[in-house]
Design a protein around this nucleic acid. Structure first.
Lengths: 165, 165
DNA sequence: CTACGTGCAAAGCTTTTGCATGGAA
DNA sequence: TTCCATGCAAAAGCTTTGCACGTAG
């Protein structure tokens, strides 16, 4: 959890989550807070199982069980704090959807790298299309697949086939 | 669907599939052919299980087992005949990717309707973005979610919550 | 006292796979 | 004969859920 000076970057999402929970008469338990802090401690893509090892180990002690992690991730998506970006190896991949500019991803089918790019242009096009259909757009998910520059280079050895989610 | 005179619209995909299989030293078996004909008999979105009931029933007799259906659908995607468009109810949703213009979908979160729209504009934007990143784009998958015009109408009763894939 | 949460284990689901049988080249 | 394919049943894997027990309010 990188701190910028004294600012805890997980504070804002935790607060937003608390507000969301209030509207549903739910509580911000230590488990839920631990999960939000964990997933907001770094700005990386992640899947549920990634946190299970870490958080379930110290269950009760600033951790949470697998069930609670899954349940909480669903809540965080509902709260608008997380976004499902893709599905890799049959696992749902999440990313922050708060305090971060809108973007989509180029996904390399060789090394699985996910390259972000800002999506204003696309959102704009979609707004127009949605309007034409009387469709109230809530969001979108765009996965562009292909081969990244690194893996395209013929001479050098390409990336290892890894799960770089 | 619509036949142009006496032309069987499933003939072209079957042929294309045969060619693909040849390149992999595989055979166009009756089972594989039955599957291609089934999924190309109508231009609808579908998932694997949808065909299991239909095709597995008459196994051996112009049908195929669940395993073979799953195996063949994967081959058809590889062959460029099918495309994975989305995931609904945890099931992979497919659509024709041959003899049909490129498009993406607006997905209604109320009635699950999938509304197609041509995607040249988006493909164009993506070409540019990919080029900027030296990324060799192979394709994309775009799911726009929101609420369709029908379900947005406040006065009338909205669509039934159905799986209109 | 009541309602909400957690953890555990088991269930649920779709999709994949091992294996024995069968058929085409 | 030698692969390639099929079908069955079982496995795999992620995610959800039932239930009993706790605990905040």
């Amino acid at each position: 959890m990188s701190n910028l000076g004294t600012i805890d970057e997980t504070a804002a999402p935790v607060n937003k989550f608390r507000e969301f929970l209030l509207t549903k008469k739910m509580r911000l338990t230590p488990e839920r807070e631990a999960i939000v802090q964990a997933v907001y401690s770094t700005h990386h893509h992640f899947d549920a199982e990634q946190w299970v090892g870490d958080l379930a180990r110290r269950s009760g002690q600033n951790g949470a069980s697998r069930s609670t992690i899954y349940r909480t991730l669903n809540l965080l998506v509902e709260a608008g704090l997380l976004r499902c970006v893709a599905r890799t190896n049959d696992r749902q991949v999440y990313e922050h959807d708060y305090g971060y500019p809108a973007h989509d991803h180029l996904i390399c089918r060789k090394c699985n790298a996910m390259i972000e790019f800002p999506n204003e242009a696309i959102a704009e096009v979609l707004e127009k299309i949605a309007a034409e259909h009387g469709f109230r757009m809530a969001g979108h998910r765009l996965e562009v697949d292909g081969v990244c520059a690194e893996c395209s280079r013929p001479k050098e050895r390409s990336h290892r086939k890894l799960d770089m989610i």
